[in-house]
């Protein structure tokens, strides 16, 4: 009898166990089959509901994959812009992680620096900044990104806006001049970014330079090839949904084509690839339905081009993404898959 009860003990079914044990007492069955698995109360069989297996992708794995996928682009940036770029990256990541730890400590939550999410936010923010930015501004931006962009809304998974873009928007509004001074590669002289030339002429004279990245711009805007390589790796790992970069590309190219400007130059320039592959695909702030992802992505593409072509700002990716982040709950509600429409 005792062996029956012992083997029913499971850390997950304590309550069940009580009932079954009571029933067992009542019936007092005698069992005579040969037991293969002897009963040892310390190692009873586990009774758990299925599924009993799990995919290998974890949240932490996904965050680290995104960081790894950003390394080529980061490397290219440091190669092109030298030490100042490295300081911006280091300052931003350090600022993000320190703020994360501080906020979690203040909110009396477990400190989860090792999940990689704060480091990722810091790195993403750094890649949207100009390489000549004083590092303390990067720290401040990262603190706003994590503090206001993330923890003010309840921490991981609860923020409506992409934290890195919140940080960038804050810096852009607070320090307009250093935020728009873009160094040319291998040089400390600042100059016009390709976007300025595209805005003036509708295309860019050296598309190959745009693709390889030897142009002026913020850290992560420059090398298309490094960003695309990272994106391909994330798609292959199943971390990001292909619909979002595809939709943004289609939206952007369509508006460019209609407006009579060069779609390729617009796709390869500015923060578009960084935004489409790494920012807009952020799990937390993008829609969860398939149809919603299309609406969200196409809208980002269209909005980006509208800002680039007709608004005062030269670049519109980050604002387009922030606006659509805000629309995400609505998109989710309007694009429920068939089985889950309200009845």
């Amino acid at each position: 009898m005792a062996r029956w009860i012992a083997r029913l003990v499971s850390d997950r079914t304590a309550q069940n166990h009580a009932t079954v044990a009571a029933q067992a007492q009542e019936h007092e069955p005698e069992y005579e089959t040969t037991q293969v698995i002897e009963t040892d109360p310390g190692a009873a069989l586990l009774v758990t509901p299925g599924p009993h297996i799990h995919d290998t992708l974890t949240a932490q794995g996904a965050m680290l994959s995104v960081i790894a996928a950003l390394l080529p682009a980061t490397g290219v940036a440091i190669y092109l812009f030298g030490l100042p770029a490295l300081w911006v990256v280091v300052a931003s990541i350090a600022g993000a992680m320190a703020t994360e730890a501080l906020c979690q400590w203040a909110r009396k939550r477990p400190i989860t620096l090792w999940d990689g999410s704060a480091a990722l936010t810091g790195l993403l923010l750094a890649l949207t900044l100009p390489p000549t930015l004083p590092p303390w501004m990067a720290v401040l931006g990262a603190a706003v990104a994590i503090g206001v962009g993330k923890h003010a809304f309840g921490g991981l998974g609860a923020n409506p806006f992409n934290p890195a873009l919140v940080g960038r928007a804050f810096l852009g509004a607070s320090f307009a001049a250093p935020m728009s001074a873009f160094a040319l590669p291998f040089d400390t002289v600042t100059g016009a970014t390709p976007l300025a030339e595209i805005a003036a002429t509708g295309t860019y004279s050296d598309l190959w330079a745009l693709f390889a990245g030897t142009t002026g711009g913020s850290l992560g805007e420059t090398s298309a090839v490094a960003l695309l390589a990272g994106g391909a790796a994330l798609l292959w790992r199943g971390v990001i949904d292909w619909r979002i970069p595809a939709g943004i590309g289609i939206g952007t190219a369509a508006v460019a084509w209609i407006a009579g400007v060069d779609p390729v130059a617009h796709l390869l320039s500015g923060g578009l690839l960084l935004g489409a592959i790494f920012m807009a695909t952020d799990w937390v702030t993008s829609p969860i339905t398939r149809k919603g992802k299309w609406i969200y992505a196409l809208s980002i593409g269209v909005l980006t081009m509208v800002i680039r072509l007709w608004a005062a700002a030269p670049e519109g990716v980050s604002f387009a993404i922030l606006v659509m982040n805000g629309a995400t709950p609505l998109i989710n509600a309007l694009t429920r898959p068939k089985g889950s429409r309200k009845r």
Binding site: L8, V36, I37, A43, L45, L46, T48, P49, H52
Partner: peptide
């Protein structure tokens, strides 16, 4: 137990599933 005896056990299992790993149910004995 009789079926497991026929195939032999390398070690003591922690969990016995009836069915497949996705939709199968665990048994207590």
């Amino acid at each position: 137990a009789h079926v497991l005896e026929a195939v032999g056990l390398k070690e003591r299992p922690r969990e016995l599933v009836m069915g497949g790993p996705m939709m199968g149910i665990t048994v207590a004995s």
